[in-house]
Amino acid sequence: MNYSRSEFAELDDISAAAYGHAVELGRFTRDDIVERLALSPAEVEHAEKVLTLLRLLQPMPGSPEVLVPVAPDVATADLVSSAETQIRDLQQAVTDVRSRLMSLTPVYFEGRRLRNRLEAFDVITDPTTVQSMLDHLGTHCRHEWASVAPGGARPGDVLQAARRSALGMRERDIAMRVVYQHTARSDLATRAYVRDVTAAGVEVRTADQVIDRILIYDRETVFLPTHMADDEDGEGGLDGGAIVVREPTLVAFVCSVFEHLWDGATPFVPDTSRAPTIADDLKQSILRLMAKGYKDEMVARRLGMSVRTCRRHISEITEELEATSRFQAGYNVALAHMLEQRPGPERDLG
């Protein structure tokens, strides 16, 4: 049975007086209460109904037609016991439901963790798995592919695989853009590769410095190296594993970084006769890094060249500045305001 507040009768003054009189008599007698309390029969009938509902009047055992008063605590226990039982049952039901549902909390958060990991990024430490994923995405790329490749000359086997992949994607009319470092221009194999892929429609540019290896597929999936840019190997490749990013906001950010690098890079035209201007860019970059106090090894890594080549450039710069030391070279650079003459990004060497 369901109880509500309206189902419990209100104890009014007349009913209370009638109850007191019944306690004195030991029973509830209508005529006597009418006379003693000067009440109307209707009022007494109402009082009897209220007291019965409140369990203050109960049938006498063996004589159900006789109503006798009972103590308030007995009446209370009799009146609310069913309601209390129902309340306890509901409380237990609520506790059981809460317990069963809350037991799913670890399942929910584990599922969220796995979903977020799938949607945001994966960390792949096995190079074979990374290459397999790259091959798969290269085959299923639909619209656009972009890449940033730090370092200088590309290994021969890497160039062969990249050539096959690029030509295959161009056959499917995939837009392709690559940013190398300026030092890649001096390598004959890299120049031959760039000549082949640009003839097929791939756009290639170079910059003095780039941040790290980046691969972008359809502006939906990004591959980044697991190592930081200042790791000891400094290769900027994915041989140590990759972070695969899919979360749209993170992907959009990486795409913006690529566009910034692309806008500041110089078109790579393998047969151009104006390569000395790139050498000037490299010298400017070397001067800027030297001015920051970087050692030869760090300058070489940042510019994607060997330490030996870097030192040769430094030697040439020092000679051009008629300096006998790094300090004097820096002083002469400051006097000549050479670092204020940085070329603009829009120069076309083609």
Rank of each mutant, 00 (worst) to 15 (best):
P106D: 05
S132P: 00
C310L: 01
Q86T: 14
D218H: 03
D233I: 12
L114W: 01
V68L: 09
E43R: 06
Y294E: 15
L261V: 08
C310T: 06
T128V: 03
A265H: 02
A291K: 15
M60C: 08
E84Y: 11
P72T: 07
G201T: 07
D196E: 15
R117W: 01
E35C: 05
G237S: 11
R219H: 09
N332F: 00
A192S: 14
F258K: 02
G293D: 10
R170E: 04
R246W: 02
I214N: 02
T183R: 10
S81H: 13
G304E: 03
V178G: 08
G344W: 00
H21G: 03
G293C: 14
T266Y: 04
K292R: 15
T324H: 13
I243M: 05
P248L: 06
L79R: 11
P64W: 05
S82M: 12
S147P: 02
S15H: 05
M228Y: 14
S273H: 10
Y217A: 03
C255Y: 00
G201V: 09
V130M: 01
E144Q: 07
I317V: 13
L54Q: 15
V123N: 00
V68F: 07
E35R: 12
D187A: 15
A334C: 05
S15Y: 06
T198A: 10
S4Y: 04
